[in-house]
Design a protein around this nucleic acid. Structure first.
Length: 661
DNA sequence: TACGGTTGTCATAGT
DNA sequence: GAACTATGACAACCG
C-alpha cells in the first residue's frame, strides 16, 4: 500500500501550528476540522503511526513508532519553536524525549532527529529543501546521512510494519525518483529520529538541565507577563503530543473530511497510550484537563471561519504558496523554513503556544501532586526520571516551585487555593471539579512542614482577591474560605484582627475547615472527617480543641442566658408576690373597716338597749353595772357584771328578766 | 484608674 | 468510656 503524502509533511505544518496558537486552539481546531466524514476517518486511521505495545517506554530503539513521520514532524515543530527563542517545557514523555533530542541535536551540531530540522528551521526555503532532506541522495551523500544509514542498518527490525513499511517503500521510490522530496524527507526524518534516540541515551544530562532550567525561567517570565485573559489557555491542555497526534492523523487532503466529533476519542486514546503507566493514567483520568474539541466547538459556536470553508482554506493555503513557490504545498519539504509570518506574529504565537505548554506542565506537576499525594517537588522529580530523558529542573527548588505555581495559578495556599481556582477553571470548561477537601488533604499531606505553607501565605492573599471577584455561588465550604479571605483581605494593615483566636490558630495550621464547621458538625461527620483526611497530630489536636472550646463557648452562652432567664423569672415572681401582698393588705384593711363598723353598730345597739331598760322601780339600768348576755335560744338577759364571773346561776334570773323586757 | 458588664476559657460534675 | 452539657470560677477586654 502506498503511503499517501501526509499533509503535515508539507510546509503547512508550522503554519498550521502557529495559526493554531495565534488564533486560539479551540477556534483553529474547529477551523481545520470541518463536518464529519466517518468513512474517510476510518480510512485514514490505519495510516496513523502505530503505537508501541509498551507505551511506558516510548523511547526504546526497538520500537518503531518514533520513526514515524509523526514524531519527526513533531520534533521539527519543536525545533522551530525553539528557533523562535521561546522556551518549551515538555508535557508528555514524548515531549520530554523530543526536548532531549533537541538538546542532543544541538550538541552534535546537526545530528539526531532535530539536527536536520535545526538547520532547516533557521534557513530559507531553498536551504531547507536540501538540508532538510528534500533530496534523499544529498542526504545520503552527507556523513550524517551515512551515519544514519548505519544506524538504520544496525536496527533492521525496529520499524513498525505500517510506518516502517511505508518508509521502505518510499525509500525505493525515492531511489528511483529523486523528485519525491516529501517522501524522502519522511524517511530521513525517521532515520533522524532513530539517530537522535540513540544519541539521546548517550548524552549527558547537563544540557538537558540547562535547557530545562532555561525553559522554566523563560516560562516563568512569560507566565508573569500574561494576564488573566489567557487563563483559558491553560484549560486547553494540548501538548505537542496531542497536537501532533491530532494533526498527523489526517492527511492534508482530508482536512475537510474530518469531523470535530471524531477527534475527542482519538485524543483520549492518545492520552491513554502516552500515559500508560498507572500513575499517568490516573492523572489523565482523574484530571480532565484536556479540553476536547467538541467542547471547544460549543465554546465557539459563532466561528466565522466555519461558515466559509473556502475562505479559511485560502487563508491556510496562501502562506504555503508563499513559502515554497517552487513546490506545491503537498510536496513541500518537511524541513522547510518558517512561513512568511512576520516576526512579531511568530513570537506571539509561539509564546502563546509555549505558554500553554508551560502552564500544562506546571498544571500537571501540581495536579499530579494532588492526585498522587506526592509533593510537587516529588512530582517534578518524576519528570526527570532517568528513563524519561528529561531533566526538568536542576534548579527546581521549592522556591521556584512556589513561584511557578503562584504565577500560573495566580496564587496558592499550599496548593489548596490552587485547586480551587483551578477547579473553577475546570468547572468552567466542563472538567472535573475535585472535592476541595481532598485537595486540602493532599496539601497537608504533601506539605508536612508548616513553614512551607507559611511561605505561600502571601500568595494566598493575592489569590483570594482574584477569587473574590469571580466567586459566585458560595457553598458552605467556599463561603468559609471566602469569608476567611475577606477577613484577610480586609485587614492587610492589621491582619487577622477580626479573627478569633481559634480561627487564627486554624489558619496558622491551615486547617481545611472553618471553625464554625468544626464546632457545628455532628460527631459522626466530625469523626469521619478526621479519619478521611490526613491531618497531623497537631492539626487533629487543634481541631478537637477548637470543637471543645466552641462547644463549651456555646454551652457557656446558653448557661448564662439560662441564668439570666432564671433571674428574670425570679424577678417576675417577686413582682407577683408583691402585688399579691398588696392585695391582701387591702383586703385586710377592708375587713378591719367592716369589723369596726359592725362594732360601732353593736355598741350603738347596746346603748339603745340599755337606754330602754328599766329596773323594778322604773329607774334606767346602769350599763356599767349590768351587761347583756345572749343565750342559745335567742333570748337576751340583763346580767349584773359581778355575776357574770361567778357562774351561770345568776344568768337565768337576769335572763328571765330581760326576756320580760 | 477603678469598676462593672461581657465574653471566652478551664475545670469539674453530671447526663 | 466518650461525648456532651451545665456551671462556677477566672481572666481578658471594653466602655
Amino acid at each position: 500500500m502506498k503511503l499517501p503524502k501526509p499533509w503535515w509533511a508539507g510546509g503547512g505544518l508550522l503554519q498550521l501550528t502557529i495559526l493554531l496558537s495565534l488564533v486560539g486552539l479551540r477556534v483553529d481546531l474547529d477551523l481545520f476540522l470541518p463536518p464529519p466524514a466517518a468513512a474517510l476517518w476510518e480510512e485514514l486511521l490505519p495510516l496513523c503511526p502505530t503505537r508501541p505495545a509498551s507505551a511506558s517506554n516510548p523511547f526504546s530503539a526497538s520500537e518503531g513508532w518514533e520513526r514515524t513521520p509523526l514524531l519527526s514532524a513533531k520534533g521539527r515543530l519543536l525545533h522551530e519553536v525553539r528557533a523562535l527563542g521561546v522556551p518549551f517545557i515538555p508535557r508528555t514523555r514524548v515531549d520530554a524525549w523530543l526536548v532531549h533530542s533537541v538538546a542532543t541535536g544541538n550538541a552534535d551540531g546537526a545530528h539526531g532527529l532535530l539536527g536536520t530540522a535545526a538547520s532547516s528551521a533557521v534557513g530559507d526555503g531553498g536551504q531547507s529543501a536540501s538540508a532538510g532532506g528534500g533530496d534523499p541522495r544529498a542526504a545520503h551523500s552527507s556523513p550524517l546521512a551515512a551515519e544514519e544509514e548505519e544506524e538504520k542498518a544496525a536496527e533492521p527490525t525496529a520499524e513498525v510494519p505500517d510506518a516502517g513499511g511505508c518508509g521502505s517503500q518510499e525509500n525505493e521510490m525515492l531511489r528511483e525518483k529523486s523528485e519525491a522530496v516529501d517522501h524522502s524527507s519522511q524517511q530521513e526524518e525517521n532515520e533522524e529520529g532513530v539517530s537522535a534516540q540513540a544519541k539521546s541515551r548517550q548524552q549527558s544530562k547537563t544540557e538537558e538541565h540547562k535547557m530545562a532550567c532555561a525553559s522554566a525561567r523563560e516560562a516563568e517570565k512569560i507566565t508573569e507577563a500574561r494576564n488573566e485573559s489567557h487563563l483559558h489557555w491553560s484549560d486547553t491542555s494540548f501538548s505537542l503530543e496531542d497536537l501532533f497526534q491530532l494533526l498527523s492523523s489526517q492527511p492534508e487532503h482530508s482536512l475537510e473530511g474530518i469531523s470535530v466529533e471524531d477527534i475527542p476519542p482519538f485524543l483520549s486514546s492518545v492520552c491513554e497510550s502516552v500515559n500508560s503507566s498507572a500513575q499517568n493514567i490516573n492523572l489523565s483520568h482523574a484530571i480532565s484537563h484536556d479540553v476536547n474539541l467538541h467542547e471547544a466547538m460549543l465554546l465557539y459556536p459563532n466561528n466565522t471561519f466555519r461558515r466559509d470553508p473556502s475562505a479559511r482554506s485560502s487563508q491556510a493555503q496562501e502562506p504555503l504558496l508563499q513559502l515554497n513557490p517552487h513546490t506545491n504545498p503537498e510536496q513541500a519539504t518537511p524541513a522547510m523554513s518558517l512561513p512568511p509570518f512576520d516576526n512579531q506574529m511568530r513570537n506571539l504565537t509561539s509564546q502563546d503556544l509555549l505558554y500553554d505548554l508551560d502552564s500544562n506542565i506546571f498544571d500537571g506537576i501540581n495536579l499530579m501532586s494532588l492526585a498522587t499525594g506526592f509533593s510537587p517537588l516529588e512530582v517534578s522529580q518524576l519528570f526527570e526520571e532517568p528513563d524519561s530523558g528529561l531533566s526538568l529542573n536542576s534548579s527546581y527548588n521549592s522556591t521556584s516551585l512556589t513561584n511557578s505555581s503562584y504565577r500560573i495559578y495566580d496564587g496558592t495556599v499550599g496548593y489548596n487555593s490552587d485547586l480551587q481556582s483551578l477547579c473553577h477553571d475546570l468547572g468552567a470548561v466542563g472538567g472535573c471539579y475535585p472535592e476541595p477537601h481532598k485537595h486540602c488533604h493532599m496539601d497537608h499531606r504533601t506539605i508536612a512542614g508548616f513553614h512551607v505553607s507559611l511561605e505561600c501565605q502571601q500568595v494566598f492573599h493575592d489569590h483570594t482577591y482574584h477569587l473574590q471577584s469571580g466567586a459566585s455561588e458560595p457553598t458552605s465550604e467556599s463561603f468559609a474560605w471566602s469569608e476567611k479571605s475577606q477577613k484577610t483581605s480586609g485587614c492587610l494593615d492589621n491582619p487577622d484582627r477580626n479573627l478569633s483566636r481559634d480561627e487564627q490558630r486554624a489558619k496558622a495550621l491551615h486547617i481545611p475547615f472553618s471553625v464554625d464547621e468544626i464546632v457545628r458538625m455532628p460527631v459522626d461527620s466530625f469523626n469521619s472527617m478526621l479519619s478521611r483526611y490526613y491531618l497531623t497530630d497537631l492539626q487533629v489536636s487543634l481541631i478537637r480543641d477548637i470543637r471543645r472550646r466552641g462547644k463549651n463557648k456555646v454551652a457557656a452562652q446558653n448557661c448564662r442566658k439560662r441564668k439570666l432567664d432564671i433571674i428574670l423569672n425570679l424577678e417576675d415572681d417577686i413582682c407577683n408576690l408583691q402585688a399579691k401582698k398588696e392585695a391582701l393588705k387591702n383586703e385586710q384593711t377592708q375587713c378591719s373597716k367592716a369589723i369596726d363598723i359592725m362594732r360601732q353598730k353593736l355598741h350603738g345597739l347596746h346603748q339603745d338597749v340599755f337606754n330602754r331598760l328599766r329596773d323594778d322601780q322604773g329607774r334606767p339600768v346602769n350599763p356599767s353595772q349590768y351587761a347583756l348576755q345572749y343565750s342559745h335560744d335567742g333570748t337576751v338577759l340583763i346580767v349584773p357584771k359581778e355575776l357574770i364571773s361567778s357562774g351561770h346561776k345568776k344568768e337565768a334570773p337576769k335572763g328571765k328578766r330581760e326576756r320580760r323586757n
